[in-house]
Design a protein around this nucleic acid. Structure first.
Length: 204
DNA sequence: AAGTTGCA
DNA sequence: TGGT
């Protein structure tokens, strides 16, 4: 594998098959209560290819009118986000090395052609706490590069893998080039779920 | 603005 | 096809 930027940690096979199945069940329950919606770019209103929902106290949302932000309610249903499953809190405790619990879990669903352009996570009030990402389902071609520009590298993220952007890597630029169809049987109809845990505010 | 395109 |  190509060299990762400083502060970007890749943990392959962090979740075994049984843990992936258990976690998927939890996320299905979240999606049943807080349906996936199509987020839209600020100003242009252009639809993103990824569909999203959240769980936890806060969720990341975007729309044409108000842009990128965190809020406590689902933008379509107006309901509070479902609670963060204990499994996710456990994974954060195990891997994040951060004292305060995560407030947001962004659930991104990538179907066959969905992608995500290179970006930095900077909508949080807390830009120091790490960002923890969990992959479920089909393999993604993930791209990551240093915060200040320069060369990016890409590698595959398979079901059960974890990536942590922490320390120097917190503001790393990252995105998803594409999904490799048929690479996992975890999701019956294919596609990829990515769960991103974040601390949004500064204090607990 | 987490998009798209176009070019090497 | 891949890196930006």
């Amino acid at each position: 594998m190509t060299t990762l930027p400083d502060g970007v940690r890749y943990i392959p096979e962090a979740l075994d098959k049984s843990a992936q199945t258990d976690l998927l069940k939890e996320i299905r329950a979240v999606v049943a209560k807080a349906p996936l919606y199509t987020p839209r770019m600020p100003r242009t209103g252009k639809a993103m290819s990824v569909r999203m929902t959240n769980c936890g106290l806060l969720g990341w949302v975007t729309d044409k009118e108000h842009g990128y932000r965190y809020q406590p309610t689902h933008p379509v249903t107006g309901e509070p986000w479902p609670a963060m499953p204990d499994m996710l809190l456990d994974l954060w405790r195990t891997h994040s090395d951060w004292p305060d619990p995560p407030e947001a879990c962004l659930v991104n669903f990538y179907d066959g052609p969905a992608r995500m352009g290179l970006h930095q996570d900077k909508d949080e009030e807390n830009l120091v706490a790490p960002v923890l990402s969990i992959s479920l389902g089909d393999t993604a071609v993930f791209r990551v590069g240093p915060a200040d520009g320069g060369r990016t590298c890409s590698f595959r993220l398979a079901s059960g893998d974890i990536v942590i952007l922490g320390g120097e890597g917190r503001m790393a630029r990252h995105g998803v080039d594409r999904i490799l169809p048929g690479t996992s049987s975890l999701l019956k109809d294919g596609g990829r779920l990515n769960l991103t845990l974040r601390r949004v505010t500064k204090a607990g």
